[in-house]
Nucleic acid binder design. Structure first.
Length: 211
DNA sequence: ATCCCGCATT
DNA sequence: AATGCAGGAT
């Protein structure tokens, strides 16, 4: 059975969901919200920023940890996430809190540095790389895995998934970011745990379809 | 595989 | 009362 290429999947997602959106906020907000949203609904992140305003890295480092914990409480895991936000902010300080300076660094070096921070796993690191640091490092999340699994690609680990996307697309961080947003939207609307296959743009080619 | 946390939804 | 949510660490 012939499977769609990464580019064909992308084109079909655009048909289904229209022009992709982008991760909202300033680069530092994006990095902070990437931590806050871990295993947490996006509405909780919005709640935190509505009360917090725009977070500034220098102020975060000057803030007592308990205050930071209280600020992010609605997102859960407050102790762990507060420590991670501090770690990310201290990492950012190495680049003078200057996103342009950080962007001049090598992509794989940045990825290794982020993965070295406690509380930053592959998914969060890649989200930061794409949306804040503008590096083409494909974000692989639970939605992505479930979609590919249902579509019958048969990938057994994230390395294979990464190769599928990164060798099948232009190395453009914008495409990676849009793609991630589209997969997220698809996972929320159709390719859920309990799939909603009516109206899915992949329904004729998906072996996992439930019709 | 299991536990971690807070909040919305059902 | 139970489940689920842009995960990560052990």
């Amino acid at each position: 059975m012939e499977r769609l290429t990464a580019q064909q999947v992308y084109d079909r997602l655009v048909e289904g969901y229209g022009k992709p959106r982008w991760w909202p906020g300033t680069p530092y907000e994006i990095m902070v919200s990437a931590v806050l949203v871990q295993n947490t609904a996006w509405t909780q992140v919005e709640k935190v920023f509505a009360a917090w305003g725009e977070p500034e890295p220098a102020k975060v480092l000057a803030m007592p940890v308990e205050q930071l914990q209280e600020t992010i409480r609605p997102c859960g895991f407050m102790k762990a996430k507060a420590a991670t936000i501090r770690a990310v902010t201290e990492w950012y300080r190495r680049y003078g809190f200057d996103i342009e300076q950080a962007r001049t660094a090598d992509q794989h070096r940045l990825r290794r540095e982020l993965l070295g921070l406690k509380g930053i796993g592959a998914e969060t690191a890649d989200a930061m790389l794409v949306f804040a640091l503008h590096k083409p490092s494909f974000v692989i999340d639970a939605y992505t895995r479930r979609f590919l699994d249902r579509m019958g690609y048969g990938f057994s680990d994230d390395r294979q998934i990464r190769r599928f996307f990164e060798s099948g697309l232009p190395a453009d961080y914008r495409v990676y970011g849009w793609y991630h947003w589209l997969l997220l939207e698809h996972g929320k609307n159709h390719c859920r745990k309990q799939p909603v296959c009516e109206g899915c743009v992949f329904s004729e080619v998906c072996p996992g379809r439930a019709l």
